[in-house]
Computed example of a mutant assay.
Amino acid sequence: MPKRLTFLASLSLVAAMSIPLSAETTPDAGTVLARVNGEEITLGHVIVAKSVLPAQYQQLPDEVLFDAILDQLIQQTLLGQERGDQVPQRIELALQNERRSLLAAETLQEIMRTVTTEEALQQAYDAKYADGFGGDEFNASHILLNSEEEAKAVKELLDSGADFAATAKEKSTGPSGPNGGSLGWFGKGAMVPEFEAAVIGLEPGEVSEPVQTQFGWHIVKLTEKRKAEAPALEEVRGELSNEIQQQAVEDRVAELTKSGEVEKLEVEGVSPNMLSQPELLQE
């Protein structure tokens, strides 16, 4: 079921009748703009319809959108009325899911809005950077090779006393090879997960076993490790806001789950592959 309003070509059979508004009333969301066989379309319907339009339509002037959206809603109403009271099961289920989703999203927005205060941000900042430092930073080098066999052979050379930088210049296929394999200083998240895990597991001066990533096989040497200087609050405001909001949502969901009556049933004959059987939905 489409979630976005889609502009259709004008229907020649549609003749929208203008409904004059009383000059003594101030329009609000409940103000009726059209009636289609007795079914009302309000200003609120038009406003909500605009809010879910794709970005390219959102940029159009309201003067252009207003009549187009109202005409669209009239057309949709006429087409929907063709079904009478016969709502296909898949549509009814989709409406139920959409209602669930919209109400949940509204609750989430309310939770996130109320917890992200300046006081909460400052407390989160103080807790995370109380020692004046940020996360770990690493100064490392690596030798990149095409195969595990080559990587093992290079590791044996290094274990036998070969100089790491000189070996990197000779053997590494990576762009840092000519520089002795040096990658300089970097923090967590800068490297692919497998490489980062290898670096974190080393002590300064240690050389790793061969490590495979999407780029090939690496021999990694950790040269130095240090703590980064703590960033200013403004630099991490967005990050801290996300953390506060995520934690608040998780806490609220856990609280609701604990206090609510949730029963997941194991029904004989129901299996995951039924997700791919839309024919189970009755027409």
Rank of each mutant, 00 (worst) to 15 (best):
124 A>T: 08
201 G>N: 02
135 G>F: 06
282 Q>T: 15
63 E>L: 12
265 L>I: 13
180 G>D: 05
89 Q>A: 10
243 E>C: 07
14 V>E: 12
149 E>V: 00
122 Q>P: 01
237 R>D: 08
87 V>G: 04
60 L>Y: 13
205 G>C: 00
87 V>L: 12
138 F>W: 11
84 G>Y: 04
223 T>H: 10
136 D>Q: 07
85 D>T: 14
46 V>P: 09
78 L>Q: 11
10 S>Y: 06
41 I>F: 00
192 V>N: 02
163 D>A: 04
273 N>A: 09
79 L>F: 12
236 V>R: 04
95 L>F: 04
231 P>L: 05
239 E>P: 03
204 P>I: 02
62 D>C: 02
218 H>Y: 06
51 S>T: 08
68 A>M: 13
254 A>I: 11
199 V>Y: 01
219 I>D: 02
92 E>A: 15
102 L>V: 15
116 T>G: 03
201 G>K: 06
44 G>A: 00
115 V>K: 09
61 P>Y: 13
105 A>P: 00
256 L>M: 11
260 G>M: 08
58 Q>A: 12
225 K>M: 11
279 E>M: 03
77 T>H: 09
220 V>N: 03
87 V>M: 12
142 H>F: 03
107 T>L: 15
6 T>E: 14
34 A>F: 09
226 R>S: 03
241 S>N: 13
44 G>R: 02
97 N>Q: 10
266 E>K: 15
175 P>V: 14
207 V>Y: 04
274 M>S: 05
207 V>S: 03
138 F>H: 11
150 E>W: 00
105 A>S: 15
24 E>D: 12
168 A>K: 11
106 E>F: 10
129 Y>P: 05
185 W>L: 09
152 K>L: 07
31 T>S: 14
50 K>S: 12
94 A>N: 11
162 A>I: 08
144 L>M: 10
11 L>A: 14
134 G>W: 00
96 Q>K: 14
148 E>Y: 01
119 E>P: 03
210 P>G: 02
109 Q>F: 09
207 V>D: 01
262 V>D: 06
54 P>M: 08
65 L>D: 11
215 F>W: 13
97 N>C: 10
219 I>L: 13
57 Y>L: 14
241 S>H: 10
66 F>W: 04
119 E>F: 07
244 I>H: 07
238 G>W: 01
19 I>P: 05
